[in-house]
Design a protein around this nucleic acid. Structure first.
Lengths: 146, 146
DNA sequence: TTACGTGCAAATTTTTTGCATGCAC
DNA sequence: GTGCATGCAAAAAATTTGCACGTAA
């Protein structure tokens, strides 16, 4: 695990477990909710600190979809993906498109620029309204709101 | 101008003027700085409210490049563009790439999704280090910091 | 005149920090 | 035992809001 001068504490293990096992794209609130299910005494600061740690270490990515809530997803060394975000139900779909990645590189070259990372987010609506409304209803997914 | 039940006040005129004439991508702080050059009594709230108004009206776009500072740019009915952001000097380059837009639509179709808008940001560094450092030095561009 | 806009300060919201105490090593 | 980690509460930082007063229409 993460033994680069980092301590393996009860809380960190719990937070990381919940993060790994979860359906992706959790907010701090959602994550803390799940953590507190198991140990109600864990504080916000610890979750913030732990996730920052994972993000710094490249294990997690910070996401921000414009609803003032930072989300985290598990980083995947192999493949990069981007996101479709439904603005009605909040559903997030991941996509990969090598052609776009290649075009990006071409654009960077055009402007004499070196890309370190990128963010490509498509906002809109699910066309399958039934599924969308259903997801909207059962927002018990969140499990936690202050 | 904007006569849909909106009043044309001294402050709004000043803020909008400064916004329009500026080199794009201003933060609220930068914008307020320029406004206060002319009228030191203008408050944050007015700038926030005015820019929110422009954004709602589709005249300005809100941007967020991950340094906790919302930026605004003039919206262009005609052409959509995306951004390259240098993480050293903060320089922002705009680009257009119809092929990417088309690929996006294809992706949306694949997932039965309707795109309303999107965000495509390439983060990295200027390869022309000289220009980059120079920009970094002359950050008097900001003109205002609390 | 009359309602909308402004400035100020206080309230919110999200995230970070300081510090005494606790626990991993 | 020693120092990093935690929890709490306070601090920051960005944005929003309430309210008395000003002003465009």
């Amino acid at each position: 695990m993460a033994e680069q001068g980092l301590r393996s504490t009860e809380q960190r293990r719990l937070i990381i477990d919940k993060f790994f096992e979860s359906a992706q794209h959790l907010t701090i609130d959602e994550l803390l909710g799940r953590v507190r299910h198991e140990d109600p005494k864990v504080g916000y600061a610890t979750v913030y600190r732990t996730m920052k740690m994972l993000a710094d270490g490249g294990i997690a990515h910070e996401l921000n979809f414009g609803d003032n809530a930072t989300r985290y997803e598990l980083a995947d060394e192999e493949a990069h993906h981007d996101h479709l975000i439904c603005q009605k139900c909040g559903h997030i779909i991941e996509f990969e498109e090598p052609l776009i990645e290649e075009l990006q590189e071409r654009i960077a070259a055009r402007y004499n620029f070196e890309i370190k990372h990128h963010k490509h987010e498509l906002y809109g609506n699910c066309k399958n309204t039934a599924e969308c409304e259903q997801r909207l209803a059962h927002t018990g997914d969140r499990e936690y709101s202050k």
